[in-house]
Simulated assay, not measured.
Amino acid sequence: MSMQFFTLGDSGLKVTRLALGTMTFGTEWGWGSDKATARAIFDAYVEAGGNFFDTADAYTGGTSETWLGEFIAERGLHDESVIATKFSMNLQAHTPNAAGNGRKNILRAVEGSLKRLNTDHIDLYLMHCWDRLTPPEEVMRTFDDLVRSGKVLHVGLSDVPAWYASRAQAIAEHRGYAPISALQLEYSLAERNIENEFIPFGTRYGAGIMAWSPLASGLLSGKYRPSAAEPTAGRLETVRGTTNPGFQKFNERNWAIVAELEKVSAELGRSMAQVAVNWAMTQPGVASIIIGATKLEQLNDNLRALDFEIPSELRQRLDHVSALQPTFPYSFFGSEIQGAMTGGQTVGDKPAGYYPDLNISGKFAGVS
């Protein structure tokens, strides 16, 4: 296998197409990997050529950041590694200013992450989640201060509305702040809603998409198969009682996706997880896919998603079964309306070859 590097958004930060998610480093949440297993997963990823690590201050009570910092130091990979970490969710906070996205908490959180990661700077610092309170002006000013101080090199947003991301980037452009270089968002065959606004935003305004949960919380991993003898009702028991939207994946649309994915995987002679990751990784605008594992064999299987291409006919089948239903206002922009705005003529945005040096994603240049 060969890891390909992409520049992240319009930044000069070079990252591998597969990022290692370390939310599973630690067992504080009742699941995850012990230290020996986490180290083995880290080593396997590095030996496969990976350089991009994703963590957060909230993951496993800080253990994720601490172990990641230790593993990088043990192998002397400080200069080679690209570390992304996040703030917003302080699970131990007892006061409102010790969590969220206000300037006070950002400055508190960054110091904690630097200490746990045992580093003097963070390569990519992301707002973990929109708190519905803090204006983007405050976040972007604080981000810029951190970049100017050298504690942070690049900044990004995770799990925010598209209007918020757009406003934040506009503020950065207008005021000369450090721009948003990355958007970390859920994306998979079962969750394609970012295609409506985030993909166009990212490709036009320089923010690379880092996709999390490419296996849809395990739905696309091969663990759940419509062809299995176990009835669907039995599988539904695995998620009953949770209100986490990340686990609310069992519905008729998604079962149809799983069924088609199983067929396509069989025709390719690949695991369902490999095909699902490969599909997401090669979609327009996607700079990197975050893969996580609690077992070494899971990581090794996902790493093999780099080893093949999905033929166009099979990709079309996956695209079709997982296609989004048009919603307003996108349902309004059909051929009849478009024709009324172009004098009935076919008008493209740019001619073929307008971006001659870029790869198939249209915006993110690969470097070998």
Rank of each mutant, 00 (worst) to 15 (best):
residue 168 A to T: 10
residue 137 E to Q: 11
residue 203 T to L: 13
residue 264 V to N: 05
residue 167 R to I: 06
residue 348 G to E: 13
residue 104 K to S: 09
residue 296 L to V: 12
residue 63 T to C: 00
residue 212 W to T: 06
residue 206 G to H: 08
residue 213 S to F: 07
residue 365 A to L: 12
residue 266 A to L: 12
residue 139 V to E: 03
residue 364 F to L: 15
residue 261 L to I: 05
residue 354 Y to M: 03
residue 312 S to C: 00
residue 52 F to I: 07
residue 252 E to N: 04
residue 305 A to G: 15
residue 330 Y to D: 13
residue 128 H to V: 07
residue 346 T to D: 13
residue 104 K to Y: 07
residue 122 I to W: 08
residue 286 V to A: 04
residue 24 T to K: 07
residue 147 V to P: 11
residue 14 K to M: 14
residue 257 I to L: 02
residue 340 A to D: 13
residue 104 K to A: 14
residue 82 V to M: 03
residue 1 M to G: 13
residue 319 D to H: 12
residue 318 L to E: 10
residue 86 K to T: 09
residue 170 A to L: 13
residue 178 A to C: 06
residue 75 R to K: 15
residue 305 A to C: 13
residue 116 R to D: 02
residue 281 M to H: 09
residue 354 Y to K: 03
residue 128 H to C: 10
residue 303 L to A: 12
residue 228 A to M: 01
residue 173 E to I: 08
residue 133 L to P: 00
residue 37 T to Q: 14
residue 180 I to F: 09
residue 119 T to L: 01
residue 163 W to N: 06
residue 258 V to Y: 02
residue 109 A to C: 08
residue 165 A to K: 05
residue 259 A to W: 01
residue 87 F to G: 04
residue 42 F to I: 08
residue 266 A to P: 00
residue 107 L to S: 01
residue 36 A to W: 00
residue 225 R to Q: 09
residue 153 L to Y: 13
residue 198 F to P: 00
residue 280 A to D: 04
residue 4 Q to D: 12
residue 129 C to S: 14
residue 40 A to G: 03
residue 57 D to S: 12
residue 307 D to R: 05
residue 265 S to V: 08
residue 162 A to N: 04
residue 321 V to F: 05
residue 38 A to L: 05
residue 83 I to P: 06
residue 266 A to D: 14
residue 355 Y to Q: 14
residue 367 V to T: 14
residue 339 G to Q: 13
residue 105 N to H: 15
residue 32 G to I: 09
residue 148 R to T: 11
residue 263 K to M: 01
residue 242 T to Q: 11
residue 302 N to S: 14
residue 295 K to C: 03
residue 159 D to L: 08
residue 82 V to C: 12
residue 38 A to H: 10
